[in-house]
Computed example of a mutant assay.
Amino acid sequence: MTHLLFFTVEGIPCALPLAEIRQVVGMVELRPETGRRRGGAGTMNLHGRTVPVYSLRSLLGLAERPPLPTDVLIIAHPSGECVALWADGVRGVQESRVQLPPDASSSPGVLPTEEGEIIVHDLGAFLAAEEIAHHLLPDGAAVAGGATPPHDAEKAGEILAERARAVARPKKENGETPFSELLTFRLAGQEYAIKTQYIREVFIMHEIIPVPGVPDFIVGICAVRGEIISVVDLRALFSIPKHGLTDLNRVIVLSDGTMTFGVLADYITDIYIRPTDPFSPVEPDTTPIEQRYLLGAIDGSVIVLDAAAILADPAMVIDQTRK
């Protein structure tokens, strides 16, 4: 079963095979490049390597706008080449719901679905195509004259420049990267983050079967490609108060090779990397979660959970003999 990374471009849901993606980083300040290539937005320095950046807006024939800190760069490697794709944001990882037959569309490497999604099943062919894929766009998509969302241009420029300096730093000689890759998600009005090394996959919640006699924080069990896993509600586990309406429709599957279970989230907000400098302390009264489950905070308000500590918690091991 093929897994796809879903992302958005001007509100249009798009996807790429997860196997072609190396990582996702926050948007950085781009460097100009000489020459012209279709969809070319500039280049970025990724650990000392110059990587071409493609604007998916341009490739799809949408209106261009300046980069924003909320944008993302999807680092992919079609046919062994390293490229960066500029998108608006990441939605998460899902199993493919469509078959990808050869010559599936009139635009090379791309398959539009009946649900209005654009599946880029062959990135190399899509980038090499000579024409803009206007016909792939849903009715009403803005192909010209798009407006830039309100933002502080000076502050945005500072953020993009700092990120560019961070990702340009070389990797350590022992092969370890000086960065942490994080997935951020929303839960009960608060944004949390988990290191992606502990995340096996993310999927839209389907049927969860309740199990009698288990702790309140165990919502139930569900089948994931033939494997039965338990699903945990972190709000109940950590006594997190509910704030307004929530829509727990995402399951983040955590694993350390020994323990595996899913946790509920309202939605995925971002996937990006940051330097492995110490995280900021979590401000008092920000969260009821005990300090032993926290690594710290980033960007002032995003709380980084210690997935290793959560996975190792003895409370997660259900005693099947308990009455």
Results as ranks from 00 to 15, higher is better:
131 E>G: 07
184 T>Q: 05
273 I>W: 00
154 E>H: 02
245 L>K: 15
211 V>G: 09
262 G>L: 13
294 L>N: 02
159 I>Q: 12
85 L>R: 02
112 P>C: 05
190 Q>N: 06
223 A>N: 13
96 S>A: 15
258 T>Y: 09
169 R>H: 15
295 L>S: 04
146 G>A: 15
271 I>G: 01
148 T>P: 12
114 E>V: 05
65 R>V: 00
137 L>T: 06
9 V>A: 05
8 T>N: 04
105 S>Y: 12
154 E>W: 08
35 G>T: 14
292 R>S: 02
19 A>W: 05
27 M>F: 06
77 H>K: 13
55 S>W: 09
175 G>Q: 06
166 A>R: 03
165 R>I: 15
214 V>N: 09
272 Y>Q: 07
315 A>E: 13
72 V>C: 10
177 T>N: 04
208 I>D: 03
178 P>I: 04
230 S>Y: 00
12 I>A: 06
196 T>W: 15
25 V>H: 04
109 G>K: 10
112 P>L: 14
234 L>N: 10
321 T>H: 05
315 A>S: 14
162 E>M: 04
252 I>C: 08
184 T>N: 01
304 V>M: 09
10 E>F: 07
116 G>I: 10
312 A>E: 08
134 H>N: 14
110 V>T: 08
284 P>G: 03
237 L>Q: 01
92 G>L: 06
41 A>M: 02
91 R>E: 15
299 D>S: 11
133 A>F: 14
24 V>S: 10
108 P>W: 07
132 I>R: 05
231 V>F: 14
182 L>N: 02
274 R>T: 15
160 L>C: 09
250 R>A: 04
52 P>T: 03
158 E>Y: 07
93 V>Y: 01
214 V>W: 13
39 G>T: 12
284 P>I: 10
25 V>K: 00
297 A>R: 01
19 A>T: 04
267 Y>S: 11
193 A>I: 01
17 P>V: 08
147 A>M: 13
264 L>F: 10
144 A>G: 11
155 K>Y: 15
291 Q>F: 12
17 P>E: 05
274 R>A: 13
284 P>V: 10
217 F>P: 07
312 A>S: 11
59 L>D: 14
90 V>R: 00
100 L>D: 12
188 A>R: 06
236 A>T: 10
70 T>D: 13
185 F>V: 02
17 P>R: 02
235 R>H: 03
19 A>L: 07
23 Q>P: 04
46 L>E: 11
122 D>E: 07
243 H>E: 15
225 R>S: 14
304 V>A: 09
310 I>N: 01
48 G>H: 11
82 C>P: 03
48 G>M: 11
288 P>N: 06
278 P>Y: 01
118 I>S: 09
113 T>P: 00
113 T>G: 01
256 D>L: 02
42 G>T: 12
16 L>Y: 06
31 R>Q: 15
247 D>C: 14
308 A>L: 12
252 I>N: 10
306 D>R: 04
263 V>L: 11
291 Q>D: 12
38 R>T: 15
135 H>R: 03
182 L>R: 00
72 V>Y: 05
24 V>W: 04
243 H>L: 12
221 I>H: 04
256 D>M: 00
156 A>C: 07
282 V>T: 08
